[in-house]
Amino acid sequence: MIELFSAGLEPPVFWALIAVSFISSFITVALGIGGGALLLAVMASVMPPLALIPVHGVIQTGSNVLRMAVLIRHVHWPPVALFLLGTVIGVACGGSVVVNLPPGAIMIGVGGFVIWSVLARPPAWLSRLPLVTGLISSFLTMFFGATGVFVANFTKSLNLPRQSHVASHAAFMTLQHLAKVLVFGILGFAFGPWLGFLLVMILAGFLGTLAGRLVLTRLTDTSFRRALDVVLILISIRLIWMGLRSLF
């Protein structure tokens, strides 16, 4: 039975990834960000490199769709249309680039920008230009995969209550990951052999979302923002370290 869902992965690896999918969704809902990068880092150590970004993109699409559905009444809709437009442009540009950008340089750039935004004040343009944020983050996601940490700074700049932050971030990331998956499909990636695995991973992520929502409702806005800042900085430091290692 497990062969129908494991996509050829060894059973210990398969069950470990299911557990990480649950944990990553729990972290994303409870703290606002971090789960996608955590899942990507674990998947990168056990999955075929060519499958990593497209498979991770489908899992994140499913997880964010279900997360948004659970918190749909809290979504802040005004910037969504412009973010979508930027997303379409960004993934189209990313998918058309023949020469891969150095992944290490992208990691360092994203990590440095996020740390600056957290320790300083999110730049004013970030809340005014959802199209630009969608374009940049969606271009980067074609190479880097998990740019939720970048989009989280845009969402944070909107100064939303904690439930609205999580719900709106899920809406933005749904659009971004869905567009990325469509482009990978057009470029010829075969998702068929991974369908059972994707289904189980998305289900595990949904259970993590439900568990994380119980924690989210018990946090105050102040404690939520403090926890979010800590998570953003830790993830960014890791991104910079990984980028430096890959370059040098």
Rank of each mutant, 00 (worst) to 15 (best):
R128K: 11
G104P: 05
P130G: 02
V91Q: 02
C93G: 13
L175M: 14
P130K: 00
L129V: 03
I89V: 15
L160I: 09
K180Y: 07
G111D: 01
L131V: 06
A171T: 10
T147E: 10
R128C: 03
N100W: 10
L119R: 09
P78N: 04
A69G: 14
T87H: 05
F172K: 12
A170T: 05
M68V: 03
L178R: 02
L158D: 14
G111T: 00
N159I: 04
R162L: 00
M173C: 04
Q176P: 01
L178M: 12
Q176A: 11
T147Y: 04
R128I: 01
A69N: 13
M173A: 04
I106D: 07
F139W: 09
P161V: 07
N159C: 07
G109C: 12
M107K: 13
V91R: 00
V70F: 09
V151A: 14
R121N: 13
L158A: 14
M142K: 02
G95P: 07
V75G: 09
A171Y: 06
M142N: 05
G111F: 00
R162I: 04
K180E: 08
I115P: 02
I89N: 10
M142P: 02
S164V: 12
H76M: 10
L140S: 00
L178I: 04
V149Y: 12
V97G: 14
L71S: 09
L175N: 08
S164W: 06
A146K: 11
F172G: 10
A167F: 04
C93L: 15
A92K: 11
V132M: 08
V110N: 06
S137Y: 00
P122H: 02
G148W: 01
K156M: 11
L82P: 05
V75R: 07
P122T: 01
T174R: 01
T141H: 09
A167H: 05
